[in-house]
Design a protein around this nucleic acid. Structure first.
Lengths: 205, 205, 205, 205
DNA sequence: TATGAATGAGAATTCATTCAT
DNA sequence: TATGAATGAATTCTCATTCAT
C-alpha cells in the first residue's frame, strides 16, 4: 500500500518545517546571520543536518525567507493596529502597543529584524533596507493625514517618521535587554506615545 | 581623526599600526565583523598577513579595540560640542552638527558603530551596549539640566534620551545611504534639531 | 533491446524494473557513473527513491549489472552479425553495420560502454577490461580464420583486433558527437569497412 | 630583515607547486576526476589541505590546467617526432615511438588523457574533445601529404586518422595494463607501425 | 620587524542509503 | 510493494593563526 501522502504525512511535514523555521529564527536572532551555523539550527531543531537541506535549499535562502516572513508579520501587525484608529494619539498607542507586544512575546522576531548582523551579503542588505523603508512608511502615513488636518505643525513627515522609527526601535531594544522586560513594558509604551506626540507637535485638532 | 599617537618617539611603529587600523575600520565598516577577513584588512593596508599578527593579537581583539577607539572618538566629539553650549537648542545644534560632520567625513566610523554586524561575539555585544549607554548619556545630561530649569516639561529623561539617540542614528544612517549625503546634510540637521526640540517639549525658559 | 524478460509470469515487476534500468542507462550514459545520482535515475524513471532500493541493492551493483547487460547486448548483436557471414569483407560489413545501428538507435548503450567515466571503482574497472577483451575477441576470430585460409597476410591477429576495436570505437564515438549522426552513418560505415580490409591486408582468397 | 622573496623562497615555492601538480596528475590518472578527492591529492603530496588551496584555486581549475599541460606535452612530443621525418613509414615509426616512450615512462600522462573518467563536467568534456581533435590532426597531416604524392590510395584521410588515433590508443592502453609493459613495448610498436601502413595502403612511392 | 607559506579546524552542502508507514 | 522523510559520512573550500626565514 503506497503510504498516505495527503493526510498525516503532509501535516507532519509541514509541522516539522514550521518547527525548523522557528528554531532557525531563534538561532539567527541570537547569533546573527554569519555567526549562526546550520549545525546550530539543526541542533536547536533536534534534527540531522541532512534534514535541513531536505526542507530548505540553503542558508541564505532560508534567512531571506525568514526575514521577509518576520518583517511581514511585524509590519502587518503594526499597520493593522494603526489602521483601525482614527486619531493620531490612538494610532500611536495602538501601533506601539502592538509593537511592544510582539517584542515581549516573540522577542526573536524583533531581534532578527533589528539586530540581524548581516553585513556584506547583498541580498540581505537589500531586504533590511526595504524593511526600514516599510517601517518608516507605517508611521509616515498617519502623520501625513494629521498634517492635512492641521493636527500637527508643518514638518517633513518623512524625516519625522524616520526619526520615530529609530526612536521606537531603540526603546524596544533597550526594553528587551532588561532582565524582566514585562515589568517595564507599560511605562516604556506610555513614554513612547508621549514622546511621539510631542515630537510631531500634536495639537489635538 | 582617531588613533593619533601623542607620543612622538615611537612614530614609525605607530604610523604603520595606525595605517592598519584605519584600513581595518574601513574594511569592518564595509563588510561587517564576520564577513571581513584579515586578508581583506592587510590587503587594504598594503602589508603582509604576518605583519598584522605582529601588531595585533587576533581579529577579535583588534575589532574590540577599534570599536572602543572609534566610539571614544565619536562620543568625545559630540560631548565636546554639547559641553560648550549653554542652551538646549544650541546643545542639540552643536552636538548634531558634530555628529553629522563625522558621518560625512568619516562615514566608516559611524558605520562601524551603528551597523557593525556583530552578533554572537560576547565581547563585542558588551561593547555595543556600553556605546549605546554612553551615547544616551550624552543626550540625557542636557535634558536633566533643562528639566531642572523647567525649560522642558517633566518626562523620563532617560527614556527621552534613548529615543533621541535612536532617532538621530536612524536619520544619520539614512543620510549615509543616499548617493550624495552632503546635498541633504543641512536639511537633515535642521530637521533633527527641530524634531528634538519638539520631542522634549522645549519651552524656552 | 536489452532487459527483455523472457519469463512472462513476473511481467509487472519486470516491467517496472526494466523501466528503471532503461532510465538508468540513459542517466549513466549522459552523466557518467560518479556524476549521476540515484535521484537522477529515479526522476528519469518516475519512481521514488525507496523504489530504487527495493529493486536494486545499491548504485554500484546496478551499474555493474547494467554494464554487463549492455555489454552482452552489444557484443551478441555484433557477434551474431559476424557469425552469419562467410567472408571477411561480409563479416566486417555485417558486424559494423550492427554496431552502427546500435549506436544510432541506442546511443546510450554505446556511450555507457565507451565513455562510462568510471575510474577508481575496482568492480567497474574489471568489467571494462572484460568488455574490451570480448570486443577484441569478436574481431579476432574472423581474422584467425582468414589467416588460416591465407586471405590476409601473416600478422599478430590479436594486436590487429585490438587496433580495429579501438579504431571502430573512435569512429563511432565521433559519429555520435555529430549533430546529425544519421547523415554521416553510411559514409562512416563504408570508411570503417575499407579501413579494416586494408588494415588486415585482405587479399581476397 | 624582510625575508628574501626572490631567491630561494620563490624556487622552493615553484618546486612545491610542481611536486603537488605531479602528485595530482598521478592521483587523477589513477582515480579519475570525480573519484579523486582533494584529500587524496594532498596526501599524495604530503601537505595539508589548506596548502592545496594556497597553490590552486579549486579542483576543477587544477584538473583542467593539468589536462591541458599534459595534452600539450603529449601532442607536442608526438608532433615533433613526426615533423622531423620525411616519409610516412618513418613518420609513423617516430611518432609512435614517442607515444610509446611517454606511455612507458610517464604512464600517468597517458592515463589522465585517455581514461580521465570525466563525465558531466562541461569544461572537461570540452577539453577532451579538443584533445581528440588535435591528436587526430597529428596523424592526418602526414596522410594528406602522402596522398598528394600518391603514396597512399585515395581515402578520407580525416576518417583514417580518427581510426588510427583510436587504434593506437587502444594498443597503448592495453600495453599499460600488462604487468610488464616494457617487455612487450617493442613488439607493440612494430605491430602498430605495420598496422598503420597497411591501413593507409602505403605503396611506397 | 616583516614576510608569506603552511596549517587544520570548521563551515556549507551533497548524496547514498535506511526505514517507518 | 511503494513512498519519501530522515540520516550522517564525506567532500569542497575558507580563513584565523603560526612560524621559519
Amino acid at each position: 500500500m503506497p503510504y498516505q501522502s495527503t493526510d498525516q504525512t503532509r501535516q507532519k511535514k509541514d509541522a516539522k518545517r514550521t518547527a525548523m523555521m522557528q528554531a532557525a529564527v531563534r538561532v539567527f536572532a541570537e547569533k546573527g546571520y554569519h555567526a549562526a551555523t546550520i549545525r546550530d539550527v539543526v541542533n536547536a531543531a533536534g534534527v540531522a543536518i541532512g534534514t535541513f537541506y531536505f526542507y530548505f535549499p540553503d542558508k541564505e535562502t532560508l534567512f531571506v525567507y525568514l526575514y521577509e516572513e518576520t518583517a511581514d508579520f511585524l509590519l502587518q501587525a503594526i499597520q493593522q493596529a494603526v489602521t483601525g484608529r482614527a486619531t493620531l494619539p490612538k494610532q500611536f498607542a495602538a501601533g506601539l502597543q502592538s509593537y511592544v507586544n510582539i517584542a515581549l512575546y516573540e522577542p526573536a522576531v524583533v531581534q532578527l529584524l533589528l539586530v540581524g548582523g548581516v553585513g556584506a551579503v547583498p541580498a540581505l542588505v537589500e531586504r533590511q533596507a526595504t524593511f526600514r523603508e516599510r517601517l518608516t512608511a507605517i508611521w509616515q502615513r498617519p502623520l501625513d493625514t494629521a498634517l492635512d488636518k492641521n493636527q500637527i505643525i508643518p514638518q517633513n513627515t518623512r524625516r519625522t517618521a524616520e526619526a520615530l522609527a529609530g526612536a521606537f526601535d531603540e526603546i524596544v531594544l533597550n526594553l528587551l535587554n532588561l532582565p524582566e522586560p514585562e515589568m517595564e513594558a507599560d511605562a516604556a509604551l506610555q513614554d513612547m506615545i508621549h514622546f511621539a506626540l510631542r515630537a510631531v507637535a500634536y495639537t489635538g485638532h
